[in-house]
Design a protein around this nucleic acid. Sequence first.
RNA 1: GCGCCCGUAGCUCAAUUGGAUAGAGCAACGGCCUUCUAAGCCGUAGGUUACAGGUUCAAUUCCUGUCGGGCGCACCA
Length: 565
Amino acid sequence: MENQVNFGKSALINLIAKALAACRADGLLTGTITPKILLESPKHEGQGDFATTISLMLAKIEKKAPRAIAEMLVTQLEGQVDWIEKIEIAGPGYINFFLSADYWLKILPIIHQEGTAFGRSKPSKKEKILIEFVSANPTGPLHVASGRAAALGDALANLLKATGHSVDREYYLNDIGVQVSFLGRSTYLRYRELFGEAVILPEGSYQGDYIIDIAKALKTRDGDIYLKGPESEHLPFFTQYSLQTIIAWIKTDMQDFGIDFDQWFSEKTLDDHNEVEAALKILDDKKMLLEKEGARWLVSTSFGDDKDRVVVRSNGQTTYFASDIAYHLNKFDRGYDRLIDIWGADHHGYVGRIKAAVQALGYEAKQVNILIHQLVNLLRDGKPIKMSKRAGTFVRLSEIMDEVGVDATRFFFLMRRSDSSLDFDLELAKKATNENPVFYVQYAHARLCSIMRVAKEKGWHIDEVIQNTNLDTLRLLTLPSELSLVRELSQYPALIKAAAETMEPHRIPFYLQTLAGLLHSYYFACRVVTDDKALTAARLVLVTAVRIVLQNGLKLLGISAPEKM
RNA sequence: GCGCCCGUAGCUCAAUUGGAUAGAGCAACGGCCUUCUAAGCCGUAGGUUACAGGUUCAAUUCCUGUCGGGCGCACCA
């Protein structure tokens, strides 16, 4: 779905290419290499709508001053098409293009026509992508850091879908192994404690109060029936019971957070189907394993990892890494072209080995993208809240959602580049003032809805206005604030594309804040619904287009667009 | 010691993948409600982009080094 802006851009690039060719045909320019012609949107007012640096890039090739080259090109470009109003040469040799207002106004009918699809695009090559995220161990409730991964993964999935890819969301459940055994044992000991026994929790046990909650629930349900008999008889039950309880919590939290996973992938199924052994056999057949000191190692150094990694320990047990290899192989076997893993910074040391493993299995390194997000600092009124998972004093994601709401939680998590650590101030997130960016954006949307309500009360049929709109009407939008809004709206599809390609959802909150700012400013400066019928119609078309884009952007972030606040 | 990430306004962060005069929000200061939501708007001030080199017509962006912060460096998961 190419929109007006992209169309204009490529048309302009073609014009520049033609001008360059003409200069060379005339012998004015003699070079043979043609650099890629790029258009950018200038940062400052008065620098036009698009600019190219082609003359700067040509300077060396042609051995001529960039401004002289720019002048030659501009001579060729002038008067070619009617939608270019003015061409200027600026600075060291920039060519600035000033387009007619018509060019920008044409985006408005397109926004209305495409509606909720505005901003979507088709990729040059459609990929089947699996995003695996959160995947926190089911040995305790989800806490804050998982929330960041959750918001990030979900928004990224939305973005990649919006750019035409096929995307599935997956949560990997580590529902087997040492940690899970510790969980069962912790619950068992707490259960005994409820009957007055003095217990000592061994090293590695889970200390959180939630373990006691689970034990209490069991006591209430089943009484003292697990006190008799040896521990070993009861541990499997306690393990499974605790695990299922916590998985249920996690699923509830994710649902409350608005995330719908396509798959909950159980590590146990890898074990049940002997997929770890199968994966190791494949690696062995490819001569990717070697025997050393009684253990088996993946030669991950052949693929850029710092050191080789153990997959089978000398005691015969496979490592967690071996399971991870099998899991990634399983993902590829399900037909995905590209895998995205979202990890917290505390796991970044595993990037090298997973990338190596994927290559050892015969896939390309770029088929797995590992997105690392830095950790979250939870603050209250600017002061850090101390957390320790070991001591059980961590803040649950559900507590955050309860306190500040899902919308604010998601927005805060998505506001920062994932590379950057994130300060999340609970008091700020709750504020219903302009200090709080999520309210600022939502408020812009609510204001627009309010305008629409008022217009309806005064007898306007907005749908009809939009349907009957034409360029003559839209030309009444002549205020600088109106054209700024229109230009900003026209950037939206390119923004979505770039955010998806770079896997940087944070660009959307920034964009929305800018757009909301322009809108608030416009709102204050002039009335939409007035006695001037034609002007009101034009403005209604504009502000309803802004509403659509705000709504679409918020939707991608998984945040509501309220009609009233 | 080695590896990864980060270092930009007082604070929290952007910067169109190397482009023009580095931008927002908050905090500070000064203004704006008889009008579609003041949960808002307008204005002022705030910078040697940690530091030193290098590559380039052009560096916040790429390379090298130094300093500072975070995280990770298991035959744990």
